[in-house]
């Protein structure tokens, strides 16, 4: 469902951040990307939805190479790929439900988008999604009044509002306490199982990765070092991934 082939990226000044990445990801998989900091996890994730333009290679999603799409086509495709962020990236001044509805902005025409005009069914769906992420009753709160865990769940609801095939998550729990982290990851796991949405998650906690992942991708210095189903990953491989020497 998502195929990354020979992907390369070098930032303007520096060593290559991604070196010939080849990864294939199936529908409804919970994929965890592991690796030491600076390995290129963020770069890989953001290259998928073209927030970062990569240098060469292919990113095939729904029979199209995302790298060669024009602006209009890319915006269309982006609607199918949700993303949640370490810092939630919500519009804090707006209400929870407005932020969830933002997931629909890609489908709106210019005027509806600019003035935030949403249909009754969309609003109902937003309410339903808020229930799903256990935030009923919070619709009209300002996002700035929420805790970190609650904000991240709003972020998930916003991504779901896009009806995505894939959700990309860059360190979604790095700013959260352990209890909230588990809640957020449980939620993401449920999405893969119940809705068949693929989740690609950058994590730096190995234990959490082993708890949730179906597939583990290990990256080191911009190159894929591990690419296996979780059952095939053992301690020695992980140790080698984080080992500074090799």
């Amino acid at each position: 469902m998502l195929e990354i082939k020979h992907l390369n990226k070098t930032y303007k000044a520096g060593r290559p951040a991604l070196k010939d990445i080849n990864v294939s990801i199936g529908k409804g998989q919970f994929v965890v990307i592991l690796g030491p900091s600076g390995a290129g996890k963020t770069t890989l994730l953001r290259s998928i939805n073209q927030l970062i333009t990569s240098d060469s290679g292919e990113i095939d999603f729904e029979d199209q190479n995302l790298r060669v799409l024009n602006k209009q086509q890319l915006r269309q495709k982006r609607q199918r790929i949700g993303m949640i962020f370490q810092n939630y990236n919500l519009v804090e001044r707006l209400t929870v439900i407005e932020n969830v509805l933002h997931g629909r902005l890609g489908q709106k025409n210019l005027w509806q988008g600019m003035f935030g005009v949403f249909s009754q069914t969309e609003k109902q769906e937003a309410l339903r999604l808020l229930q799903e992420v256990d935030l009923q009753g919070f619709e009209l709160k300002n996002c700035s009044d929420l805790s970190g865990g609650q904000k991240q769940r709003v972020g998930i609801a916003r991504a779901l509002m896009q009806h995505p095939q894939i959700i990309l998550c860059d360190e979604p729990v790095a700013s959260l306490d352990p209890a909230s982290s588990v809640m957020v990851l449980d939620l993401l796991k449920k999405l893969t199982v119940e809705k068949g949405i693929t989740c690609i998650v950058n994590l730096h906690q190995v234990d959490l990765a082993l708890d949730y992942a179906d597939q583990i991708i290990g990256i080191k210095a911009g190159a894929v070092q591990i690419n296996e189903p979780k059952s095939q990953v053992d301690k020695a491989m992980l140790q080698a991934l984080y080992d500074k020497e090799s």
């Binding site: 609607q79 902005l105 988008g113």
Partner: peptide, 17 residues
């Protein structure tokens, strides 16, 4: 960035975000 990934365009991001 967060609104960009929903596929929204420049003016919409400006007004809503």
């Amino acid at each position: 960035e967060a609104l960009q990934v929903t596929g929204a365009g420049g003016l919409v991001i400006l007004c809503r975000g």
